[in-house]
Structures are given as structure tokens and as C-alpha cells.
Design a protein around this nucleic acid. Structure first.
Lengths: 336, 336
DNA sequence: CTGTTAGCGCTTTCAC
DNA sequence: GTGAAAGCGCTAACAG
């Protein structure tokens, strides 16, 4: 761990610069020298100190990423995709969890920036003004993921949460569902949740569906979803569709219906968002919106890599799209 | 982003060393000087370059962590606990996913080491010889998490997978279950899975339960768990208990039983391992082994921090214990 | 208490 | 093609 470039240089009878050139694949080095240097590196078990390289070269080969949480959310898988592709390209990930708090996000961004990452991935498009400022002034590529916005800090890689929710609403209306309750997360608001909620409401408005007293704010958990059913039953009018903003809440709702002997989808349709693995496993399987989570991470990684490579991308908005997965938790019948 | 310590020093009319002392909270600085320096730092918006500090001070304030996967596993939450406590102490996390492959783990460890982390967290206690060697020679504290071993590289923070599985087997035998099938993961073996499997088998052996043809290797997924039920039904003898090595497989099994109208637990008991959120949400709720995942991460972080602080810990094995959560998916009756 | 200086290990001109 | 030397921005002696 303490053999350094000078040791290799001495053994190979070359200058430190030459070793460095070999290490960094510069072409200005004769094949024989390169071979000799490589041999010496192996012999000494030399491992470059990337901290020193980072200081000298002004690039650290690290990327900062902040996600809300690592638990059962889509972000964990996004990070995995991101991590995988970056790793293949010799870049490492510095990761922080902000717990859906903008303030914490700001702290993390600040702390990461002091470590001079070459680029940044942040989740979502809502940030504190200071976070935006820090990121914008940092001079490094920034990708905002998991949603889209007209006004990105730099680049945005994601899908349109609003549009997906809107389309889902229309589809289920076409399947005969008419009396809707929307279930959203009671936590600190964020652009993805808000986009989904507004998408549902816009869809309902376009279809003339009543959404009076029809928005339930619940914990984003299985229990929260169960709770939603309890509260829905207290609404003084019949309901035939629960539009949940996350699969976790939707699955919680399905399981609560099992307990209450409410037949899904005949008595009540339930739809979610995310297509987590559990969505296709429950009974009945959940109608939901699928996004390629790991693919989104990989795509964000690719964009970041190209940006690091000084490429100019044709667009600042990379829309990965979504797919509505129609399954047994909602009605199937011919369109109206 | 380009104001440096010298600029602050010049403005404050002090030497760079003094600014450094203020930054690092050294006591050898007069209150007035400190105040002046602090003012200049604020005025210039100075942000220390931690890469340079890392090189000069020979500590980077980074910790490397490798986990198998970020998806629906306990490791994501362990990392979150770890990340949180380290963040509070000014330390950042470098993270890599090895996908249960020792080879990939080795690559990641090697790559991380070149970035000179101050300490290392690795998942599990089985590693390639080279990984062990690299870690052992690195001279930095290493914590192996999520299991225990007599022979840690350095420290181990976790719980006894074998013993938990063994005790669970005994408990369920006491509840009247007699004809067991064990479901384990078909993926690349690891110490946690193996510990659980051997724990189940040891329990069965102690109780004289037949385990001939009773070990099913399935995909560690909801589908894999469903598959286990299908295969169990083909075994030519009655079964009244499925001991699954993960909640994901156990929940998959429960859901398959719902589909097949197999009454749990009257006709078939099912138990899992991990106590993921879905475990208490399904119908019936799953009997499983609970470990404090985030708490394990935090504990690993605390150990790492104390180690970084040169403290000597009284033991190399930090056993966090486990708790058997007896729920409706297994029989409840007076002990034999 | 504080300024000065010598590195930390590497990259990158700049001559040769 | 290659060596020498000057930093990268900071910390940590070492004087004073």
C-alpha cells in the first residue's frame, strides 16, 4: 500500500511522468518502455493512489448521488443500475440518503461537493434554491432523475409521472370504473408524488369524475394502504376505484380488501404506481405503471459518462417513458 | 469553487496553517483570530477541498461499503443506517454492489482501496482469499456485517443466522408442525443463506424430522416462493411446514397458497426470515425472524467510528441478536 | 499562539 | 518518446 509511482519509475529506469503516461494510456510511450513499466508495476504490486491523482488531475472519478431512501422504493434499483454502469467505467459512487427532506439534500450536496465529484445525480426536480445554486455553480454535469421538468439544472432523465397517472385514469375509466378515490402519500411532498396526484386529478377532471373529498393522504406503507380502505369506506358515497400513488399503498389496500372480503376488482378496483415485484405477485395482481428502474439508473449513468466525455447531448430531457400494466386488480371489459 | 486556503489566509492576515487549524478545530488558536478567520471564510464562501486534505492528512473521511444488491433485501436498509450515522459524523460512503459474486466483490474492494477509504464495511463473512488479503493488509478497520464468524478479518457486527433458523425450527415443532420442507435460495451461495439452511437442517435433525428430499432450491423472489409450493406438492408425502430462508420466498409461497386454496396455517404452515415490511402485511401475516436492519447499519457505523477514533473495542464479535416473530402463518397451540 | 516550510503522490507542461 | 520540475490545495511539523 506504500509503493508509489517513484518506486516504479526507479525500478523501470524511467521518469515518473512516463509511468504516469503508461497508467493513463497515453500513446506517447514506446511499446518496449510500456511493457517494462507494466512489468515493474506488477512486480511491485503498485496500486495508484487515486486521491493524489484526483488532486493533480482535478478529476476524482467519483460521482455523487442522493436518493430519498434505500428501502423498498424504486430509487434503490435506480442506484444499482447507476452504480453498475459507472463501475464498469472506473467511476465510483458516493451516496447519500436525504429522507425526502430538501434540507438534508442540501447538506449532502454541500458535503459531497467538497469532495470534488466529477458529476452529480439527484433524485427528482424539486430542490432548495441553495441546492440548485450549488449544483449549477459547481461546473460539473448534473442529472436529475425519476421525473422530467421543463427547467432542469442541467439534464433530466426520467419519465412523466403526471402523464402516466393521467393516462391510467383514462384507461380505467374506459374499463368502466367511475367512482374514484385517490390515495397519495402524507409525507413531505415531492415532484414525483405531486405529479402523480395531479395526473390523477387532471384525468378525473377531464372525464367529469367527482373528486370531492376523494383525496386521501396516507402513510406510504402497506399499513397506510390498508388505512386508506378503512377511510374510503367512511366516505358517504360508493367508490369503485382506488388510484394509489405507489404500489406499496396499493398492495396494502389489496391486502386489506382480502381481510374485509371486498372482492377486487368486482366490488373495488385498485391501481398502483411503480410495478414493484410485489405488484405482480399479490392476488389479484396489481394494475400499475411500470418504469424501467434499473434501466433508468443505467441511462442516467450513460448520460453522465458522455457528459464527462465532453459530449454535447442533443437534448436536456431524456424521457424513458412508462408502460401501463393492466392486471387483475382492475376491471376488464370492452371500451365504452 | 476556486477560492482556496491561501486566499482566506491572505484576507485574514494569517498563515495558511492558522486557517487550517481553525478548520480542524485545533485549540491552539486565539478566539479573536479564529473569529476573524471564520468571518473571512464566510465572506469568500470558502469550501475546503477535501481531496487535497485527504492527500495531505492521509485520511479521506470516506468509508467503502459493499453490499450484494440494493433491491428488496435487508442490505439496503443496513446501508441506510450506516450512511446516516456516518453522515452525522462527517464521513461519506462509497458504495458498490457485488451481486452476490465474490469475484465482483474483490474487484470493488480493490477499486475502493485505491481511493484510500478510512475504513471498510463488507457484507457477510465469506470472501475470496484475495479479498481477505487485501482487506487485512489495508491497515484500515474492517467490519463484516449481517452475520457472525469465529474468524473475522477484523470486526463483525451481525447476528447468528444459523442459531435463529435452528430456534425457529424448534419453536414450530413445539407448535405441532412435523413434516418440513426447507426452501433456500438457488443463487450463488453465501454465508447468511447457508447459515439459515444449516440451522433449519440442524433443528430438524435434533428433532428427528425427516429431511430426505426436503430441501428445495428456488429463485429468491416471490415467483421462486410460489414455485416452491408447486414443487412441494409433487413430493410424495404430506408436508405441514415450509421453512423459507427469506421472507420474499415465504411471501411468494403464501400468495401461491391463496391461489391454490391451501389454508395457511391449518393445512400448511409457512415461515420466513428477515421480517421485511411485507411480512406483517400479508394474509395471514408471516412468522419470521426479525433483525434490526437499520440498527445493524448504525451499529456497524458506530463501531467503525470508534475504531477510526483509535478506540480498542472489548470484543471483535458484536452480536445484535434476533427476535422470532410468531404470526398467523404458523400454528399456535400449547407446547407438546 | 502563529507563520513558514516541506511534503502528500500524482499529472502535466516544457524542454530535449 | 522521455525526463525534469512545477504544481494540485491542504496538513503538520518546526521554529519563533
Amino acid at each position: 500500500m506504500n509503493v508509489k509511482i517513484a518506486d516504479v519509475a526507479k525500478l523501470a529506469n524511467v521518469g515518473a511522468g512516463t509511468v504516469s503516461r503508461v497508467l493513463n494510456g497515453s500513446s506517447n510511450v514506446s511499446p518496449e518502455t510500456r511493457k517494462r513499466v507494466l512489468a515493474c508495476i506488477k512486480e511491485l504490486g503498485y496500486m495508484p493512489n487515486l486521491v493524489a491523482r484526483g488532486l493533480a488531475a482535478n478529476r476524482t472519478g467519483m460521482i455523487g448521488a442522493v436518493i430519498p431512501a434505500a428501502g423498498y422504493t424504486l430509487h434503490a434499483e435506480v442506484v444499482q443500475g447507476l452504480s453498475d454502469i459507472l463501475h464498469e467505467n472506473g467511476i465510483r459512487l458516493m451516496i447519500g440518503h436525504c429522507g425526502y427532506s430538501m434540507e438534508r439534500e442540501e447538506q449532502i450536496v454541500q458535503a459531497f461537493l467538497a469532495r470534488r465529484p466529477d458529476a452529480f445525480y439527484v433524485t427528482g426536480t424539486w430542490h432548495s434554491p441553495e441546492t440548485r445554486r450549488l449544483l449549477a455553480r459547481s461546473g460539473i454535469p448534473v442529472v436529475e432523475g425519476a421525473n422530467l421538468t421543463d427547467d432542469p439544472i442541467d439534464y433530466t432523465v426520467g419519465y412523466d409521472n403526471f402523464e402516466a397517472a393521467r393516462q391510467l385514469t383514462h384507461l380505467l375509466h374506459a374499463r368502466g370504473h367511475r367512482h374514484v378515490v385517490v390515495v397519495t402519500s402524507a409525507g413531505e411532498p415531492n415532484d414525483r408524488m405531486e405529479g402523480r396526484l395531479q395526473g390523477y386529478l387532471a384525468g378525473c377532471a377531464e372525464l367529469g369524475l367527482d373528486t370531492q373529498d376523494a383525496v386521501l393522504h396516507c402513510q406510504n406503507s402497506f399499513m397506510g394502504g390498508a388505512d386508506a380502505i378503512t377511510r374510503m369506506l367512511q366516505i358517504g358515497r360508493p367508490i369503485d376505484l382506488v388510484l394509489a400513488s405507489t404500489d406499496v399503498m396499493a398492495v396494502g389496500a389489496i391486502l386489506e380488501c382480502q381481510r374485509r372480503n371486498i372482492i377486487v376488482p368486482q366490488q373495488l378496483g385498485i391501481a398502483g404506481f411503480d410495478d414493484l415485484p410485489i405488484a405482480s405477485a399479490v392476488n389479484p395482481p396489481l394494475t400499475t405503471v411500470r418504469v424501467d428502474r434499473a434501466g433508468m439508473g443505467r441511462k442516467a449513468g450513460e448520460v453522465l459518462l458522455r457528459l464527462l466525455n465532453q459530449e454535447v447531448l442533443p437534448t436536456k430531457h431524456i424521457d424513458l417513458g412508462f408502460e401501463i400494466m393492466e392486471r387483475g386488480s382492475t376491471r376488464r371489459k370492452a371500451d365504452d
